[in-house]
């Protein structure tokens, strides 16, 4: 039953991820990426990580991808209608094929390693596994210091983004 849900979702994720790489126009890539994020949210729900699934939709599909779209639109306005600027200028087909082959080789090796591993049968999760309450409790007790550090990281990133986008690079 779970496999019936897993395989379409996984296939959708892989297809959309390929769409990001294969598409020539960045706006199509961005839309593909949103599709992949939504598929991944489904997979997280399947893994009973409800909190992370919601975060995936809100943060990735909601915030990050909107930022991507925003920048694509913004740069396109300044592109003076030159569509060619958006094409990926990959003249060297051989290098691309080589990169693809390299990646496939790495994937083959990783699959080999995964197959060699001996994974026990899964533990049965507790009733509250992956709920906001459960994850939040751990986040605010055991992992409260990393949480605060993450907030400082976000603050620094925000200030950095404002400063970088404001000033000119000489």
């Amino acid at each position: 039953m779970e496999l019936l849900i897993f395989y379409p979702l996984a296939g959708l994720c892989v297809l959309f991820a390929l769409g990001v790489v294969v598409n020539n126009s960045p706006i199509n890539s961005a839309i593909s990426l949103i599709g992949m994020m939504l598929g991944l949210a489904g997979i997280f729900v399947l893994l009973q990580a409800h909190f992370i699934a919601i975060l995936q939709i809100i943060i990735y599909a909601g915030a990050i991808m909107v930022l991507f779209m925003f920048v694509i639109m913004l740069l396109n306005l300044k592109g003076k209608g030159e569509d060619e600027k958006w094409q990926s200028r990959d003249k060297n087909v051989l290098l691309n094929v080589l990169a693809g082959l390299l990646a496939t080789g790495v994937l083959y090796k990783i699959i080999d390693i995964i197959n060699a591993g001996d994974f026990n049968s899964p533990a049965t999760p507790t009733e509250t596994f992956g709920t906001v309450r459960e994850v939040g409790t751990i986040l605010f007790t055991e992992f409260v210091l990393p949480f605060e550090v993450a907030s400082i990281l976000l603050l620094v990133a925000m200030i950095g983004a404002v400063v970088l986008a404001k000033s000119k690079v000489d």
Binding site: A150, L154, M158, L164
Partner: peptide
Amino acid sequence: MCVAAAEVSV
């Protein structure tokens, strides 16, 4: 996810 958000904005 936090790091990704920070990375994307910067």
